[in-house]
Design a protein around this nucleic acid. Structure first.
Lengths: 341, 341
DNA sequence: TTGTACGCGTTATCAT
DNA sequence: ATGATAACGCGTACAA
């Protein structure tokens, strides 16, 4: 049974000829240490291939080295991008990522989260929109004393816990792109009510129209829920408007795919008969036909930055630049063109 | 500071008037216990709202309550489906899911995994294809003594560690669907060489053609790597064949989306000029235009079953039925039709 | 600057 | 069937 017995802190102490507390100090970068001692200990650690036992540290410290991803985001691709950013940040560290999906609107959601915090005692959590916009969840983190970072589209709340994108400006720019192409009847598929991102994108859309003195009758606004099917339904409604819109902005890519889907089923050609713009630049955007003009949000970079800040917040608190907003950019593909005369 | 101090096993022991070892026995369902004692302890646990500290258990047991998902799968949607299945399985348990992506072909992959095992000491891992088909990884699990379950398309290796789908039969059926529609020139976009799933799907395709006495010239076979772009490139090659194929089977949905993409760019109408069949029934399949005929693999259910078996394997070893194969089904959508005369 | 002794919450050993 | 006591590996007062 070569049950690879890992060396412990005691082995290192013995080999280095010091006490285990000294080894502990080296591990935790305590200031008061002779360079000589530190070297001896580090050499011993190298020889033995020592790495500290996270479980023992967790027990002693009262918290684990788990970073939780708390989300109720409906977009699979967005979740994967966030996970990728987190994993890049914790690569080669002692931290691990655990995923905690929560059910939006569930009455037990807060209790579930509280149990997660109390039992797992995670090092910290990333709160992803839309749950990141729930004040009760933020309060829970504060009360429990769990580090947290919020990722969202709305600048609201303590900036040191916030990483945001500038959805409003980005959507305004995207809408201006449609206006510049010559569109005047532009429909909007909104995100679900109560989502800060949905509101921000709606505001950006409306701002662009207002600046160009373009009216927005109710018949050109439809409600969606960020899922494909809701985009289909919304598009049918918008395409029934008389006169028909020549362009539609959908508040995320999945719904935009639904809009294209509905247009195709109506026998309309995208972009000749209808231009479509989405938001997120998820994988589907480049893969559908025609390729979707959309807004790319640097969500992976945002998640990575938020995770790094979470980890660093214990070591040093100089990672203030992380809270800068992350700009989105318009990706122009084939789903937008000038309207037919 | 109401820093919710969790009750410990000592509190329970005191309230119940027993020793903490007895409480431990109740927790671990030890056989030798009076019903009376058990009830007393359980009552005390209920009163105090006690739940055992996973970190302390981890330290004492030498392993954590983390279930690792080890994967190098290129499809985001497939990964999400697996995660969902795992999360359903560990819902309301003491287990947590941690995600470990590994880089295929990386020379450090095995070392990285070994470090993960030695440091985190996970309760067990789910090995997802294609990494689940890597014998070295399986050997590592055995050597380290880490529980594991493999999810894949190939029946190979110890069945008690295996959950598989029947890709070969499913693809044969899908190809027969094309043949029944009247297609005789059918192209194949293969998955990456070395993937068991790619081989199984290729074999199913070839079996169907052979049974129908349909030839498969090399010009109708192209290599892909399961990613969208490779589907585009492969389709260009296949569509250059003279005479042109009237149908193409792509070994997964992402590449099938690439095939449709390429066909659209060539000005071909799907399915009038070209029928396309994919595999996986990922989210993109129903969202692209035209909706993709594809094979649905019950991947979420497979992941859930594998996780349950992983957890149960410690309690009882009667979960043998889990290793049954999970049948895939053909989902007929609008991307397939009879060939034009 | 470094070492000693103890605590973290649980499981395991060996009694009784 | 149950209990006293010692691990598990690390952090931290406090002393030296």
């Amino acid at each position: 049974m070569p049950k690879t017995a890992q060396p412990t802190i005691n082995d290192v102490a013995r080999v280095a000829g010091v006490s285990k507390k000294t080894v502990s100090r080296v591990l935790n970068r305590a200031p008061s240490l002779t360079d000589n001692t530190r070297r001896r200990v580090e050499t011993a650690m190298g020889e033995l291939g020592y790495s500290p036992n996270p479980q023992a540290r967790a027990l002693a410290l009262g918290r684990t080295f788990l970073i939780g991803l708390v989300h109720d985001n409906p977009s699979a691709q967005t979740v994967m991008n966030i996970q990728q950013g987190m994993l890049e940040a914790i690569h080669d560290t002692e931290f691990e990522m655990v995923v905690r999906p929560v059910e939006r609107g569930s009455p037990t959601m807060l209790d579930d989260l509280r149990r997660f915090f109390e039992r797992q005692r995670p090092f910290g959590v990333l709160l992803m929109s839309p749950v990141s916009e729930n004040p009760a969840v933020v309060r829970l983190c504060e009360e429990i004393g769990c580090r947290y970072m919020r990722i969202g589209s709305v600048v609201e709340g303590a900036p040191e816990h916030l990483v945001t994108s500038n959805d409003r400006e980005a959507v305004r720019e995207a809408t201006e792109h449609l206006i510049a192409l010559g569109h005047r009847r532009i429909g909007l598929v909104m995100g679900p009510s109560g989502f800060g991102s949905a509101r921000e994108r709606q505001l950006g859309f409306e701002e662009a129209l207002r600046s160009a003195d373009i009216p927005l009758p109710p018949s050109l606004v439809a409600q969606g829920n960020y899922l494909f099917d809701s985009g289909v339904v919304a598009a049918y409604r918008l395409l029934d408007a008389m006169p028909r819109p020549t362009a539609i902005f959908a508040s995320n890519d999945e719904m935009a795919a639904g809009v294209i889907h509905a247009a195709c089923q109506r026998g309309l050609d995208v972009p000749r008969d209808l231009s479509v713009v989405g938001f997120d630049d998820t994988a589907i955007a480049a893969h559908i036909w025609p390729p979707l003009t959309t807004v790319r949000r640097p969500i992976t970079a945002m998640a990575q930055a938020a995770t790094i800040k979470l980890i660093k917040s214990v070591a040093r608190s100089d990672a203030a630049d992380v809270s800068a907003r992350y700009p989105s950019t318009l990706i122009r593909r084939a789903s937008t063109a000038a309207p037919r005369q």
